[in-house]
Design a protein around this nucleic acid. Structure first.
Lengths: 235, 235
DNA sequence: CAGGCGCGGATTGTATAAAGTTTCGCCTGT
DNA sequence: ACAGGCGAAACTTTATACAATCCGCGCCTG
């Protein structure tokens, strides 16, 4: 009875069908199975999940609000294709928010949470050794989400969910090499700092972790892209 | 032709009907004409705007995602009633984000922007002297949004829109006195600092501004409320 | 007379059908 | 042979009809 009697806005487990659709599509995007620009037809998705277009539509609208799907009027829904400018904004926002999140996570430190984090690290390591790139990508995003959940700050959590989803698309589009998704070592270091309640170390490690991810990106100028196209066509 | 050729996800001017509904309801909430807990019936709104329930539904879902409307399954949509915990989270997030936003605004300083800001300040002052509380509340929120637009950071802008809308509800619920919505003097000081390109002053003033707003709130413990009820019923 | 049960009204959730728009292919005219 | 326009198909958008759910009121029973 001491359980939080707060159903709040959206049930996270998602017993309803629209959430199942949303999470299915989200997972597909996060695991890089759906590529940017892919058309997400209503009929198509509806048939997959055995749902009517009405439900698919609501799910797609939610995803559009989260920034991982673009809905073009009278054209349909497409997996978003973040521009380099978007990418810079996303990572700047993450550099601002995530250090604060780990700070809160330190306040919430407990054996249970440390256990969850370490279990997650084990999962990540296993996926990487298995060479499962898709699981690896998803899990490295989940790590950041887990820390945000630990912080207990629901607004930061909501913001970060958005940022992580977009980051996944950005990494897919602009990663230079096929280096591992997110250095697991970094994650382990962050967990260690959290466990030791060392705020400054935790913040610093999170920050450098994000910097390293961004450093691996090659954010070509979007204008350059269009110009190049114009050149090619003009020549 | 040099205009931004970026229709992007949502057109801000909103020529379509669902945006008109969304913005109408949003304005009503921001101006404190719709009180927290108010039932937002689909038929009711649909008749007001001459739209079908389908469109009203999408608008309400968007507002739910922004956190100013709660949709309870099989019950309907209600104006959100943020808890004190929510309030603390919202203001903490604003204290984190807004100083960064003004920092970016300094980078974007130009006569045109300074003009817009000062015109806005004049509007605010006029509404306050006129004693128009509703316009005052709306305009003081718009000031923060304007600075975010100036920063050119679309992600921060999106986050801040959410935070401002929720702040409006929080202020309505938990304000102690009927002091003016947002000290216009603070806003003027922030604009002055931006104009002088004094980053540190701008950040500091924004921060103290937010602190003062939060200091005017009386965030009673929600648990205490429930417990008090239990006591009364138990006695 | 009090308490519980069941039914009716109202409202939301879902599906389906009609309407409008865009896109692509084809056909005709030069 | 190629450019331009017409037309059909597919899709999204919007509206409406149907089904499920919940709340409140009245009635019946103990």
């Amino acid at each position: 009875m001491a359980a939080k009697s707060r159903p709040k806005s959206d049930a996270p487990d998602a017993s309803d069908r629209v959430s199942r659709i949303r999470e299915g599509v989200t997972a597909a995007i996060l695991e890089h199975r759906l590529l940017p620009g892919t058309k997400l037809g209503e009929d198509e998705i509806g048939e997959i999940y055995g749902a009517s277009r009405t439900l698919v539509r609501t799910a797609l609208q939610q995803l559009a609000h989260e920034g991982i799907v673009n809905i073009e009027k009278n054209r349909g829904a497409f997996v978003a294709r973040p521009t380099p400018a978007d990418a810079r904004e996303v990572f700047e926002a993450r550099r601002l928010i995530e250090p604060t999140i780990v700070d809160h996570a330190v306040d919430a430190v407990s054996p249970a949470w440390i256990g969850r984090l370490q279990r997650h690290l084990a999962e990540e390591r296993e996926a990487e050794q298995r060479g499962d790139a898709r699981a690896s990508v998803r899990l490295s995003g989940d790590f950041h989400r887990l820390v945000a959940e630990m912080s207990g700050h629901s607004i930061y959590l909501g913001f970060l969910k958005e940022l992580i989803a977009r980051s996944s698309l950005i990494i897919l589009l602009y990663r230079r090499h096929d280096t591992p998704a997110c250095g697991t070592d970094h994650h382990a270091g962050i967990v260690a700092a959290i466990r030791k309640c060392d705020r400054e170390a935790a913040r610093a490690q999170m920050l450098s972790h994000l910097n390293e991810i961004e450093a691996e990106l090659f954010l070509k100028d979007p204008a350059a892209d269009e110009l190049r196209l114009a050149d090619v066509l003009g020549a």
